[in-house]
């Protein structure tokens, strides 16, 4: 399959991830949506790395995976901490960012 397919799949998955991030209230699901978006981008990079006969895309994807792993771990720790203090998991009820 050609590059249009790669573009289509990654654009769709990315948009779905973005949608999930916006409409869901559970922070865990929001994180999963972020993972979706990252994966979509990874797929794009890998696909184009194959079309362009270059490994740079794959290396980029590798580093994105590292970042995603770190981000997930820290994010989940933060969620855990919030849960320990508030005993609920709804981002709409967390508004200490308000100025």
């Amino acid at each position: 399959m050609g590059s249009e397919f790669v573009l289509f799949v990654s654009a769709t998955v990315f948009s779905i991830g973005a949608l999930g991030f916006v409409i869901r209230k559970n922070p865990l699901v929001m994180f999963m949506s972020v993972e979706l978006m990252l994966n979509a981008v990874n797929f794009l990079l890998v696909g184009y790395s194959s079309f362009l006969n270059s490994l740079d895309g794959q290396i980029f994807a590798l580093i994105i995976m590292t970042v995603a792993a770190a981000e997930v771990v820290v994010g989940l720790a933060i969620i855990l901490t919030i849960f320990r203090t508030r005993h609920e998991l709804d981002v709409d009820h967390i508004n200490i960012l308000k100025g």
């Binding site: 991030f21 916006v22 929001m30 981002v91 709409d92 967390i94 200490i96 960012l97 308000k98």
Partner: peptide, 10 residues
């Protein structure tokens, strides 16, 4: 600046 993360995401 509502303090709501989802609003910021939007």
């Amino acid at each position: 600046q509502s303090g709501k993360v989802r609003m910021y995401a939007l």
